[in-house]
């Protein structure tokens, strides 16, 4: 075997391990962050018993979830009931493959881009797999074979379909500016120019709202809606299967936070740096870039939490009204405006 091939395989494996573990550890610690921040917002203390400031709480929780009895109710459809939690996690991890997470590094005389798969159709790949994310919830609702999960599943499918369209329309303007669907091109264009949040404010607004809906976070958590549907689609789930839904939700949140960073917040760009400065710093520049990327994503995750404890949940008709009569025209108008500004 030639060395290039072996090097490529090892480099890709390393990137996969680094990125997936970053996400899974973040997914594990996000509940802690969420509980702490909600405690500050509501003037409480939050978790503070296990470890310093409750920092070991996620580990204790994980062990609790794993060792709990795994109850499979008698009335469920066994195959889909077991399959659904897996379907809830897999799409988010797939999307990570096309997200660039730092400037390129030099290893053994070779340049390695910090993106697992640099696809020419980048953003379409993201939407393809984020559209598959709904199946975990829909099948879980159906397989549970009881009324509240079923309602949660039906709501989820309607909600995802509606907001996927807005999500897709909101980023068209960006790609008209970058003249490419590759996410790496979008980041590089922002590093040497202005961030898309300033050139595409309407697109940013629509994307963020649709991202909240796609990840089923408040104020769009109607599939779960504990005040009316008990716990929605995961009512019948317990133990590690419930944890999978939990992990899936937080992984999806990270994926969308990373997407916002890459598409609108300049990726790993800092205001006083350009691609030349990163290249001059060599591998330390890459490390700094990865840190900046994670920091921006984390800020957006905090925004998720902040919104959750600020806004009440929508009613279903309000949800549909917002999606089809407000966000969809806004997204279309954004494309038109971008087109007018970019006339040759």
């Amino acid at each position: 075997m030639n060395t290039d091939l072996i090097f490529g395989i090892v480099a890709n494996l390393a990137k996969i391990i680094i990125l997936t573990h970053t996400v899974l550890i973040l997914a594990m610690y996000m509940p802690w962050v969420e509980r702490k921040v909600s405690a500050w917002i509501q003037d409480r203390v939050g978790p503070n018993r296990v470890g310093y400031a409750g920092l070991l709480q996620p580990i204790a929780d994980t062990f609790k979830f794993i060792f709990k009895e795994d109850v499979v109710p008698g009335h469920v459809d066994k195959v889909l009931y077991v399959l659904s939690p897996c379907l809830a996690v897999i799409p988010s991890l797939f999307i990570l493959a096309v997200i660039p997470f730092g400037p390129s590094v030099e290893v053994m005389g070779r340049t390695v881009d910090l993106v697992i798969a640099d696809l020419g159709v980048g953003i379409l790949f993201v939407f393809a797999f984020s559209s598959l994310a709904v199946y975990g919830i829909t099948f879980a609702g159906w397989a549970s074979n009881s009324k509240y999960p079923l309602l949660g599943g039906v709501r989820s499918s309607a909600q995802m379909i509606s907001y996927e369209i807005c999500l897709g329309l909101s980023v068209v303007g960006i790609f008209m500016g970058a003249e490419s669907l590759r996410l790496l091109d979008v980041v590089n264009q922002q590093i040497d120019g202005t961030w898309n949040i300033f050139t595409q404010p309407i697109g940013f607004l629509v994307f963020v709202i649709a991202a909240f809906a796609e990840t089923n976070r408040l104020p769009f958590d109607l599939p779960e809606a504990e005040t009316e549907l008990v716990a929605g689609y995961h009512t019948e789930y317990s133990s590690i299967k419930f944890t999978m839904f939990f992990a899936g939700e937080y992984a999806a949140m990270f994926v969308f936070a990373a997407l916002v960073t890459v598409l609108f917040l300049g990726g790993w760009d800092l205001p006083f740096m350009d691609s030349g400065t990163f290249a001059a710093m060599g591998n330390w520049g890459a490390l700094l870039g990865f840190g900046v990327f994670l920091f921006k994503s984390f800020l957006f995750l905090l925004f998720y939490v902040w919104v959750r404890f600020t806004l009440p949940r929508f009613r279903f008709d309000q949800l549909m009204h917002l999606g089809w009569k407000v966000l969809l025209p806004l997204g279309l108008a954004n494309i038109l405006i971008t087109g007018l500004f970019n006339l040759p």
């Binding site: 559209s131 709904v134 829909t138």
Partner: peptide
């Protein structure tokens, strides 16, 4: 797989 089948399932 993502959009039309979701409608079918719905």
């Amino acid at each position: 797989a993502g959009a039309i089948m979701v409608l079918f399932l719905f």
